[in-house]
Design a protein around this nucleic acid. Structure first.
Lengths: 172, 172
DNA sequence: AGCTAACAATTAGCATACTTATTACTGGTT
DNA sequence: AACCAGTAATAAGTATGCTAATTGTTAGCT
């Protein structure tokens, strides 16, 4: 019954303690070695932290990244946005549908190339900047609460290099 | 047009280079400071790497974690599994539905407490261990390709501490 | 001009995550 | 025994991600 309080992370810790040596790869796959698993776990934990903060102002997680890039440069095409945010075009379409529904952005067909659609922030979309940014800062602060400034920087650097390694993959 | 090749990660790099100083928090929220954004990005990049590897053997990402914990201890209840994997009960239900559909696990109502359901691996579920584990190892190797062994260990450690910080949150 | 290849957005279908509400069951209290 | 609070699983609805296929548009070639 006390077992129900256990999380994967604690399991990781337990295994690390009770590890009874052996071949590095040949035996049981060690979950504490799984970078992918931990990254996914950390990302979800962070999402659980930030999500309600954004929701309090009527924004969702998936909209946050799009907003950041639009604040930096308004009027980008969907394709440009999906490349920047690094999600598929099809995913961007649905995210923008919801943002349009929520009155955060406006779609405008490009008259010079009618295949393209430029996305413009509405007043409401611009206004969210002042309320959302502090929430994100607070969320990040909470996540790095146990890290020194050096460690935080190093984590960002290491994550960046992991992303770089994964993105340059041949994909053959 | 060359712009369409840009990804968020490259944008991060560009901003880092051309950063024109200022207040640490008051001005434009700097995306390169966003730990949460980078963790989410890294997790998705990893998923794009591992997902097809697992799919080649008929398994999905969400099933991978469940399988790992079942291989370590077969016959756990759904509640125990969702605590370990650190996803909600409701999410576990659907993941197990798909795993049952795919013939990887079997549900068995606990006769001593009919509220509980114990999950048992099928032969097919057990067999996947030998094929899936090498794929996961290869995926992890690919993700940490550009890191030294020390750096890899440190990344795991830092992620663990971020998770710890986020999970002990008051949640009031 | 007409054909074709590439491109931008979309649709459709699936997987995985969340929250909230419901159902079935258990165990303890009266 | 009857009741009630808590527990385990599920259902319902939404968000976000993916792939594959489709639609409309553009631009380049013949």
């Amino acid at each position: 019954m006390t077992d129900t309080e256990r999380t994967a992370f604690e399991v990781v810790r337990r295994r690390e303690a009770g590890k009874d040596g052996g071949e590095p790869d040949g035996g049981l796959f060690a979950i504490e070695e799984s970078l992918g698993y931990l990254m996914n776990y950390a990302a979800r934990a962070f999402s659980r932290e930030l999500s309600p903060r954004l929701a309090a102002h009527g924004a969702r997680m998936g909209q946050w990244a799009v907003l950041m890039f639009l604040w930096a440069q308004d009027g980008q095409t969907q394709r440009e946005l999906s490349r920047e945010v690094a999600i598929e075009d099809a995913t961007m379409v649905r995210t923008l549908d919801r943002m349009e529904r929520d009155g955060l952005v406006r779609r405008e067909r490009n008259p010079r190339d009618r295949r393209q659609i430029n996305i413009f922030l509405t007043e409401k979309g611009w206004a969210l900047r002042d309320t959302l940014v502090p929430e994100a800062i607070e969320g990040n602060r909470s996540a790095s609460r146990r890290l020194s400034e050096d460690e935080r920087r190093q984590l960002l650097d290491l994550l960046g290099r992991v992303i770089g390694a994964l993105e340059e993959q041949p994909r053959g």
